[in-house]
C-alpha cells in the first residue's frame, strides 16, 4: 500500500507531440482513482508513466516514499492489468500467475501457495492447469487479476481492463474488481473511456482532455458540479444539454426564452447554460417551450430529443410518463441550471 504523488509530470513524445501538459495530483493510500477521457486524451500515457513503461519527460513521480522516475517497472512493486489481458499464451494459468514471483526468486512452495490462494479467491482453482486460450474472456480477465494480486503490490494499475468483455460480464467484473480493491485496500489507478465505469468504481475521478486535467473530484462532485463544458458533456449519458444564452437582466436562452432561477454572480453577457436531461420535467406550468421530434425508449426511462429555441435539447422522463412528439412545456428542478464561460468553457 502506498500513496502516489505526481509533481508537474509532463510527457513529450520524441516527435514533439505533447501528450500530457505538466500535471500534479496526489492519490491517497488505498484509494481507487479513475482516469477518464476520450481516446487520445493522455490517460493511458499517464498510466504507463506510472507503470514505468513510458519515460517521464519532466517532473517527479513518487510511489510510497520513493521517487521512481528511473526505477525499472519490475522494481516499482506495481501490478498492471491490460485491456487484452496480456496473458502468456504458452503458460498454464498457474504459471501465468506465478511468473512474476518466479522471476523474483521466491521459493516454489511459496509461489504455489500464493497462486492457490489467489485462484481460490477468484474461482480459478479448477482452471489452474488450463491454458489461456481454453478460458472465456471473463476467466482470462480473472487470471490477469490473479497475476496482479499474487504479487501483493503497492499499486494496482488497470488499463481499460473491461473493454474487451460483453456488457453483462463487464458489469459483473466491475463489481468484482471494486470488491477486490476494497478487500486489499490497495491504491489503484484505473483507466477507462467509459464514464459509467468511472462513476461507479471511483473514489475519485480525474477527467482528462487533450493532455490536460479538466477536473479532479468524487463522482458526485464531477456529476453535480462539472468544472467545464467538456466535463459536463463527457460525464453522464445522455450528456448535459448545453445552450448558448446570455446574462443581463436575468438569464435568457438565445431566442428570448427566459430561464427562471438564480443568475451567475459577477458575470454578464453571453454565457453557456447547462441543464441535465433529468433536471427538467414536462409540466403545464413550465417556462421552456420544447419541441419534441424523436422519442428513444430505454426501458427504465424515455429520452425525448428535440429543440428549445432552435438549439438541440434532450429530456429524460421516467417510463411511466407518457410522451408524444410535438410541443410541450418544461419546468426546471431546483439547482438545475449550470453556467459556463462561453469562450473557455469553465464553470462560472
Amino acid at each position: 500500500m502506498a500513496k502516489v504523488n505526481l509533481q508537474d509530470v509532463r510527457k513529450v513524445y520524441p516527435n514533439g507531440h505533447e501528450a500530457l501538459v505538466p500535471c500534479s495530483f496526489d492519490i491517497p493510500d488505498g484509494e481507487l482513482v479513475v482516469l477518464v477521457g476520450p481516446s487520445g486524451c493522455g490517460k493511458s500515457t499517464l498510466l504507463r508513466m506510472i507503470a514505468g513503461l513510458e519515460e517521464i519527460t519532466e517532473g517527479q513521480l513518487t510511489i510510497g516514499d520513493r521517487v521512481v522516475n528511473h526505477v525499472d517497472p519490475a522494481d516499482r512493486n506495481i501490478a498492471m492489468v491490460f485491456q487484452n489481458y496480456a496473458l502468456y499464451p504458452h503458460m498454464t494459468v498457474a504459471q501465468n500467475m506465478g511468473y512474476g514471483l518466479k522471476n523474483r526468486g521466491l521459493p516454489k512452495p511459496e509461489i504455489d501457495q500464493k497462486v492457490r490462494d489467489a485462484a481460490d479467491m477468484l474461482d480459478l482453482t479448477e482452471y489452474l492447469n488450463r491454458r489461456p486460450n481454453q478460458l472465456s474472456g471473463g476467466q482470462r480477465q480473472r487470471v490477469a487479476m490473479g497475476r496482479a494480486i499474487v504479487r501483493s503490490p503497492d499499486l494496482f494499475l488497470f488499463d481499460e481492463p473491461l473493454s474487451n468483455l460483453d456488457a453483462k460480464l463487464r458489469n459483473q467484473m466491475r463489481i468484482e474488481i471494486r470488491a477486490l480493491q476494497r478487500r486489499f485496500n490497495t491504491t489503484s489507478v484505473y483507466v477507462t473511456h467509459d464514464q459509467v465505469e468511472a462513476m461507479t468504481m471511483a473514489d475519485r475521478i480525474i477527467v482528462l482532455n487533450k493532455g490536460q486535467i479538466e477536473q479532479i473530484g468524487t463522482p458526485s462532485q464531477i456529476y453535480g458540479s462539472p468544472a467545464s463544458t467538456f466535463v459536463a458533456s463527457f460525464m453522464g449519458a445522455p450528456p448535459m444539454n448545453l445552450l448558448s444564452g446570455s446574462v443581463g437582466d436575468g438569464v435568457q436562452i438565445d431566442g428570448g426564452i427566459a430561464v427562471s432561477g438564480p443568475s451567475p454572480q459577477g458575470h454578464t453577457g453571453p454565457v453557456t447554460i447547462g441543464i441535465r436531461p433529468e433536471d427538467v420535467e414536462p409540466s403545464e406550468a413550465g417556462v421552456l417551450p420544447f419541441e419534441v421530434s424523436i422519442i428513444e425508449e430505454l426501458g427504465a426511462q424515455r429520452l425525448l430529443h428535440g429543440e428549445i429555441g432552435g438549439q438541440s435539447f434532450s429530456v429524460a422522463v421516467p417510463k411511466d410518463q407518457n410522451a408524444e412528439t410535438g410541443t410541450m412545456k418544461l419546468a426546471l428542478k431546483p439547482g438545475a441550471v449550470h453556467f459556463f464561460h462561453n469562450e473557455n468553457g469553465r464553470r462560472i
Binding site: 506495481i78 491490460f82 497475476r147
Partner: peptide, 14 residues
Amino acid sequence: IPEELIEAARIDGA
C-alpha cells in the same frame, strides 16, 4: 506479438 505481452513481462521482472 502484442506489445502488452512484452510490457506484462517487463512488469513481471523478466
